[in-house]
């Protein structure tokens, strides 16, 4: 349900829109549902709308948690 993909905001355009880039695929999305988006932010895109800014620190934390677990496992 609810196909949505994180993509990088490349450039803000007029009318509260932005161009996002996902591995070379560029698309214009609406920023009507989010606030304070800057180029370089990653946003979750659903049906042409940015739904949320992705928190890079939390993403790192989640990944670090996975990695921590694997290193833990290696020690066992």
């Amino acid at each position: 349900m609810c196909l949505a993909i994180p993509a990088c905001v490349e450039k803000l355009t007029t009318d509260n829109h932005a161009i996002v880039n996902l591995s070379g695929i560029r698309k214009t999305v609406s920023l009507a549902l989010v606030e304070n988006i800057q180029p370089g932010d990653y946003v979750i895109v659903h049906v042409g709308f940015a739904l949320q800014r992705l928190d890079p620190a939390e993403a790192e934390r989640t990944l670090a948690f996975f990695a921590e677990m694997s290193s833990l496992d290696n020690q066992i």
């Binding site: 993909i5 996902l22 591995s23 695929i25 698309k27 895109v45």
Partner: peptide, 12 residues
Amino acid sequence: RESVNAACEFLG
């Protein structure tokens, strides 16, 4: 290609 994968992710 990564870009083909990306287009597919966008469109489901």
